[in-house]
């Protein structure tokens, strides 16, 4: 299990879902994961300099994980802190 899945699992667990149907639970987690990804994506986009967007699109087209991370790290200072911050903010908002 990777980090994001673990994170989402813990969120869903902390939220108190006692859903027994694994498919339903998986759907709940999928939705949470999607929202979290959207939030992080929005943060990245908001932090990228305008003149890097064309290159960013090319990197997205290549669909290569390493390239994407490397590119974003290059242009977004304190990326890890920002990502963790978004995770925390999402956690707070989600758990309410």
């Amino acid at each position: 299990m990777n980090n994001i899945e673990q994170f989402v699992d813990e969120l869903v667990s902390a939220k108190g879902f006692d859903e027994k149907d694994p498919e339903v639970l998986a759907e709940i987690k999928r939705g949470v994961m999607s929202r979290l990804e959207d939030r992080i994506n929005a943060m990245v986009l908001a932090n990228l300099p305008e003149d890097s967007l064309d290159d960013f699109n090319k990197v997205l087209d290549a669909d290569n994980e390493e390239q994407m991370i490397s590119f974003v790290k290059k242009y977004v200072p304190d990326l890890d802190e920002k990502v963790a911050g978004e995770m925390l903010a999402f956690r707070s908002a989600y758990l309410g």
């Binding site: 992080i40 990245v44 974003v72 990326l79 890890d80 963790a84 995770m87 925390l88």
Partner: peptide, 21 residues
């Protein structure tokens, strides 16, 4: 493109973000 990319997932799984989270 971000709508369909896995960037968000990738970033959350970077070591730095793991440590911070």
């Amino acid at each position: 493109k971000l709508q369909n990319s896995k960037l968000g997932k990738f970033l959350v799984n970077t070591p730095g973000a793991i440590a911070l989270s």
